[in-house]
Design a binder for these strands. Structure first.
Length: 747
DNA sequence: TCGTTAGCTTTTTTT
DNA sequence: AAGCTAACGA
């Protein structure tokens, strides 16, 4: 490949209009390179341009570059942008998430760890069920030591690259009386038996293979000439080990380029080690470090506020974000004090409505919360206002019950030995198989050292399944077998469709009277449709296991509602940052568990939040909040005080709160219209305890099938009437039970 | 075997 | 406050 000639400078097009630091990050192709890229400094652009530059300058061919990201979204974006620079989509890239790349490697070398290449990747649900089964003989008190906790311990070991043999007794003291190692070993053994692995195994197995098989390692050393890593600050130990194995070879300095920002490290709870980025120079001697500090995203006010906040952290590599444009002073970051979460939602809602009326697109607004439960109040408010919104990272398509069931059917179809999947569907729809019967099947399977499906098959043949269960079980086994036989002839789409139909699964939902059922049937149709995008059933299952995304119609403009974690890497014109109260943000739990380190991570999270905003950031804090069902008065987050005054404008009673020391919530709350609130409450109480006669008379007016409107939930249809209580299927809010007095009729 | 109920936890964050 | 599990009864 040659550089395209360019008269204005002797650089090719794609290197134009970069600042000097960016250019250095791209043109320093050989040797270890650490790019410290602050928020909004063109990190993705550097990564993609660098990738393209390596290709276009003839240093490597597409498949000789390993490019690792953390999220599927980042991988997809990178692939698209590289294609755009090159002017043509590129095939055969080793570009993907750590887990996707490892899955690909593991399929090639599965036999080295006792798997075969068709292994199943388990989801969290399966993991937990499997662990529960496996620890039963250990007699661990499930009350004191929940299996989720044990799974957490195992996962953290996996994050650190520890196989069961590598875990020392000294590391297994604090949980479940030192039985976690035993649980871990049993769990791993069972996974191998099932020809399955969990998410952590993808990394663990591949790293183990690279560690113990020099031939395999050498093969990848020959293959990968360049390695690019995104979000390096979020790598955990096992990912670090994996990278180091692939990057370090004898007598050569590694062509590894890691891009990251220590100020945006927010995943330590998942095993990420900020130290990985802090010690890069020691790991890769002769490393060049490039700092990207010119921010082209946010106004100077926003940058000033964010920088001032993050300056409170110690142990940073040190970067200062500078505005990339001179004209970008903008409005100050607003800090708004509100009474409670409803009040907060109302304020945000009004602000959104005002901006929308002023011509701003909803797609450019986001509400970023610390934890999932905070979204509820905003959802309700936005529904009431009729503002379209999308909850990012909420319940995802592939996590819904009907989808998981259908996937389990597919898994059994593709892998009869997938006991976990078989267990899931054996009694769905009802086939008269209860715990007792399942126990029997398990015993038979264990005795014969065979998968459940085989055991059931044998028991059926031997006439040992009797009574009501016999007929439906025989039918199910028959369906599955015929499906497998038909697979080569009819193709996976038809076979799956037929299987779900014949097994009675579709009918189960069609017969379900609940208001969600029709939606579930639609989801199943959508699932079958998605199958057609893949060449094989196995390909589809792999996609689902690794990507787990709902590629829903992202068409129309909506407000985004998501957690701060979910917002990393995104940007919006306007960002709302609610719930900045002590205990909520910073989260009490993180403080309790992580101490000062935890606090600093929370602060980085705040920094991430503010730097998502291009033009406007609106922080709010409530004086009281309901936690675990009861009201507690709240203190403004310490982060609010840490924002530099010159970049902040306060409203509500926040100005007083900021100057006052902590611990004076009562005084603080006096600034609020308490009286008005009392009045509201009294009014509500009065309505709630209104004589039954009144509501009874009203409810008679409602009948099933009637179309109604609710202040909070919007439009819906009555599905059942129980005195004054109505069950209503709302169009946007789903099915709710509501008192009739809050319902309006629609003619 | 299934449905109901009482009591209990939950509210981080995700590949 | 609500949703889930474990235990109990039909």
């Amino acid at each position: 490949m040659t550089h395209s000639p360019n008269p204005s400078s002797d650089r090719p097009d794609y290197l134009q209009r970069l600042n000097p630091e960016q250019r250095a990050a791209i043109e320093t192709t050989d040797g270890p390179l650490l790019v410290l890229a602050g928020a909004g400094t063109g990190k993705t652009r550097v990564l993609t341009t660098r990738f393209a530059h390596i290709l276009l300058s003839g240093r490597a061919r597409p498949h000789q570059i390993l490019a690792v990201t953390f999220t599927n979204k980042a991988a997809r974006e990178m692939r698209e942008r590289i294609g755009a620079i090159l002017g043509t989509p590129v095939e055969g890239l080793w570009l993907g998430t750590f887990h996707a790349l490892c899955a690909r490697m593991l399929r090639r070398h599965a036999e080295y760890v006792g798997l075969s290449s068709g292994f199943t990747i388990l989801d969290t649900d399966d993991q937990l069920r499997l662990l529960k089964q496996v620890i039963e003989p250990l007699r661990i008190d499930a009350k004191r030591w929940p299996s989720q906790g044990i799974l957490g311990v195992i996962q953290r070991w996996k994050d650190r690259g520890l196989t069961p043999e590598r875990v020392t007794p000294a590391e297994d003291t604090d949980f479940a009386n030192g039985q976690c190692r035993a649980a871990y070993a049993a769990y791993q053994a069972r996974l191998i038996q099932l020809n399955a692995c969990d998410f952590g195994d993808l990394m663990l197995h591949v790293t183990e293979i690279l560690r113990t098989r020099p031939d395999v390692l050498a093969q990848y050393h020959r293959l990968f000439r360049y390695i690019l890593v995104d979000e390096y600050q979020d790598t955990n130990t096992i990912q670090y080990l994996w990278l180091r194995l692939l990057a370090q070879r004898e007598g050569q300095s590694a062509n590894i380029c890691c891009v990251g920002d220590d100020d945006q490290s927010i995943y330590s709870w998942r095993g990420a080690e900020v130290e990985n980025i802090l010690r890069f120079e020691r790991d890769f001697p002769g490393a060049v470090i490039v700092r990207l500090e010119r921010n082209y995203r946010s106004t100077a006010q926003i940058l000033g506020a964010a920088s001032g906040l993050i300056a409170h952290n110690d142990g940073r590599l040190g970067k200062t974000l500078r505005p990339g444009r001179e004209d970008s002073s903008g409005e100050k970051v607003r800090v708004v004090a509100v009474w409670d979460s409803d009040d907060e939602a109302r304020m945000v809602g009004e602000e959104i409505a005002r901006l929308r009326a002023g011509g701003h697109s909803l797609a450019e607004m986001a509400i970023l919360v610390r934890a999932g439960f905070q979204t509820r109040a905003f959802e309700e408010r936005l529904i009431a206002l009729g503002v379209p919104y999308r909850v990012v990272g909420g319940l995802r398509f592939y996590e819904r019950a009907e989808i998981r069931d259908a996937l389990a059917y597919m898994r059994v179809l593709s892998q009869p030995a997938d006991d976990l999947a078989f267990e899931r569907i054996i009694n769905v729809p009802r086939r008269g198989i209860g715990a007792a019967a399942l126990q029997k099947f398990h015993a038979a399977a264990r005795a014969g050292n065979m998968p459940l499906t085989q055991a059931v098959q044998d028991l059926l043949a031997g006439g040992e399944i009797k009574g009501r269960a016999r007929e439906p079980m025989a039918a199910l086994m028959d369906c599955l077998q015929r499906g497998r036989d038909a697979l080569p002839r009819e193709g996976h789409v038809v076979v799956v469709e037929t299987l779900l139909e014949e097994a009675g699964y579709i009918d189960m939902w069609k017969a379900d009277p609940s208001p969600e059922a029709p939606g579930r049937v639609d989801n199943l149709k959508e699932l079958v449709r998605a199958l057609a995008d893949f060449e094989s059933l196995e390909g589809f299952l792999e996609h689902v296991a690794l990507v787990m995304e709902n590629e829903e119609n992202a068409g129309d403009a909506r407000v985004s509602l998501m957690t701060l974690h979910g917002a990393k890497g995104l940007e919006f014109d306007t960002v709302f940052l609610p719930g900045w109260e002590e205990g909520v943000f910073p989260s009490q739990r993180t403080l309790d568990e992580g101490g000062l380190k935890g606090l600093e991570e929370e602060r980085r999270l705040a920094y991430v939040g503010i730097t998502r905003a291009r033009h406007r950031a609106i922080i709010s804090h409530a004086a009281s909040r309901r936690i675990y069902g009861n009201w507690q008065s709240a203190i403004p987050s310490r982060f609010i005080e840490e924002l530099p005054d010159e970049h902040v404008a306060t409203s509500g009673a926040a100005s007083q709160a900021r100057t006052r020391t902590f611990g004076h919530a009562p005084e603080f709350s006096q600034a609020f219209p308490v009286v008005a609130r009392r009045a509201r409450m009294t009014e509500a109480l009065a309505r709630g305890t209104a004589p039954d006669a009144a509501s009874g008379a009203r409810s008679a007016a409602f009948g099933a099938g009637e179309r109604v409107f609710h202040q909070k939930f919007g439009y819906g249809t009555v599905t059942s009437v129980d005195g004054s209580r109505l069950e209503i299927a709302f169009e946007k809010a789903g099915s709710k039970r509501v008192l009739d007095q809050f319902i309006e009729k629609i003619s």
